[in-house]
Nucleic acid binder design. Sequence first.
DNA 1: CATGAATGAGATTTCATTCAT
DNA 2: GATGAATGAAATCTCATTCAT
Lengths: 202, 202, 202, 202
Amino acid sequence: MKQKSEEKTRMTRKEAVIRAATELFARRGYSATPTSEIAQAACVAEGTIFHHFKTKEGILLYIVKDMLDAYIQGIEVQAQEAGNGLEAIRGGIRFHFRFIEERSGEVMVILRDFPFQLMEADSPFREVVTTRFFHLVTFFRDYIEVGQKDGSIRSVSAEKMAFILMGMLNGLGRQKLLWPLKIPDLCQEVLDFCHNSLSKKG
Amino acid sequence: MKQKSEEKTRMTRKEAVIRAATELFARRGYSATPTSEIAQAACVAEGTIFHHFKTKEGILLYIVKDMLDAYIQGIEVQAQEAGNGLEAIRGGIRFHFRFIEERSGEVMVILRDFPFQLMEADSPFREVVTTRFFHLVTFFRDYIEVGQKDGSIRSVSAEKMAFILMGMLNGLGRQKLLWPLKIPDLCQEVLDFCHNSLSKKG
Amino acid sequence: MKQKSEEKTRMTRKEAVIRAATELFARRGYSATPTSEIAQAACVAEGTIFHHFKTKEGILLYIVKDMLDAYIQGIEVQAQEAGNGLEAIRGGIRFHFRFIEERSGEVMVILRDFPFQLMEADSPFREVVTTRFFHLVTFFRDYIEVGQKDGSIRSVSAEKMAFILMGMLNGLGRQKLLWPLKIPDLCQEVLDFCHNSLSKKG
Amino acid sequence: MKQKSEEKTRMTRKEAVIRAATELFARRGYSATPTSEIAQAACVAEGTIFHHFKTKEGILLYIVKDMLDAYIQGIEVQAQEAGNGLEAIRGGIRFHFRFIEERSGEVMVILRDFPFQLMEADSPFREVVTTRFFHLVTFFRDYIEVGQKDGSIRSVSAEKMAFILMGMLNGLGRQKLLWPLKIPDLCQEVLDFCHNSLSKKG
DNA sequence: CATGAATGAGATTTCATTCAT
DNA sequence: GATGAATGAAATCTCATTCAT
């Protein structure tokens, strides 16, 4: 939290919009959040939003892109530091849980209603988002293959296993952030769970 | 009350509305589907919708409730027929994959934007939905405990494991039905994956 | 209150509709009361209402006509029994206050939004209502003139005085039945008030 | 904030809406006037109405509040200039008749269906309207008491007399503005009528 | 850059009335 | 007589977006 009163350090209006939108999209969903409320929460005029983002979808795109880029970069850094394929995957899982905690707002936005609006066939943003998703799928598949080559991961379809891991992490994220129940922290259990299933020696 | 099955009645108007709504909600999302289009697709007057379901949310509730009840009933039947706890869980997973295929429309509705509208604190439908969710969580936890008693499942926190399983199945469902990629069938792999992690002998 | 369970004595459906409608129109106003609620309150099907009354306005007309006829008849009987013009007017005022108490439901209906719908130039009911209003104006004017002839009422424009009396009684009725304040009983004070103004000797 | 009176600005869109609404509510009643017609009559888009007044009720509230404030202020100025209590009341009555002529549109709005919608227990506007009504009742009661102290008004219950006066003025206003008959001007007669009943010497 | 009044297309919902049973 | 499913016109209100200042 920055000081709001000092001269130069205060948020630009654009940042204020992003923050307000993230919080509202996370809490109430993209389509249930009117731009008027975003403006109000960000203490800017409604026109200002459109001055910076052109459309409402533009805000969503900005948030989603920003978040996915950070996720992709973070998970890759994790993996590169690992000693073998299995450790890379485990590092990825650990990073996932940390990321969900630290940037829960943005994550909720994307988990809530997935950016379906951005993926429709006629959306100008379709490619921007698809690209990043392919990137993630590839990441998991590649490191599983690495693990199979270095002997840390047993012989299974790398692609299928990649989908299982991603699906699981996604589902657990939704559960944690969106369900009406208090979900306990599951990081360690998930690590064990995956370790048992992936590692060569069981 | 008329007989529904005999000669003339092919489909009630109410049924027609439900079918049309399910299909549209699944394809375009709840809030992006106007009631006018539901009416058109169901070949009824818009007023007819509101005659049967008081509100638009009412349609969603009907679909979700119907689907969850079928899911709960089906998964319990599966489990009761199993020889031990682990088999019950495996039966549940198999049922889950079958259910997702067979009733993909309704499942997409609930996976797409989850009925968040029905869960908000002031919604009259909140309880209806929450009840069913608790029911499901309990189901998984109980059968894991059964498996631990009968020796088929290793010693882990039953509750945490229940959450992992549910989160995974949920996430995989979303991936399968909603992602812009063609996802291969993962049933067998998921069964193995879970078996490895749950069974006592590894 | 009649017994509802005995064979023949129970209300006809038509009566039930009238009662329910009177109560609802009084409490919430004519146009804010949907026919569906009248049906519900009367425990009949919505179609039944239209079976008996043809239109929603028809119900209003029935109530208003019934009530005005009773009012006119009652006030005339009162007046005919009086010894002179002033007493006739005083009797009318007394009757007015009694009537308002005894049939407050129907009176509220007419005082609330006056049957403007029935008075519009193109309403088929216009005449039915207007006739009764003229009748009332005439009643007051005539008895004031009687009082002026028999020496009990001072010399003032009978017509203007009739309007003042009617306006006053109307306004007081509204105040009593519709205002959000508890209004004390004003019958005696109004009698005095008018006596002072009308009687020859002051 | 621009100057409103200078050169170009003939009428704000907001003002236009108020004028149009006043006229239509007066002529056809609040609930029989759709916002679409108000927009048309005011030559603005329908959205503009809701931009300025959140709801249709908001328009009614604005008109009623504005009118009641003017009424209260005017009647108090009148009274303060009077020599004694009786004259204050008479001044009030005179003001009432003048006000009804000059601002007949707004007065018709409030007399037609009284803002019952604004008074219902759960209306956010309830207090705004109630406050002003209490104010008026108090005004009349206080000046009658003043008159009783200065000897110009006879000894009667000030509160009851206040209610009689208000009820009478209200009823006469309705008669004048809303009845389907041509009602003669009654100001002088009402003044006499009240004078006879209130003044000490009869 | 920033504003906020204005827009108009469109969404949900209400409701009097009809009609086949 | 009685019913209640069905209707469709109309009403209120929402909201992303534009544009003159």
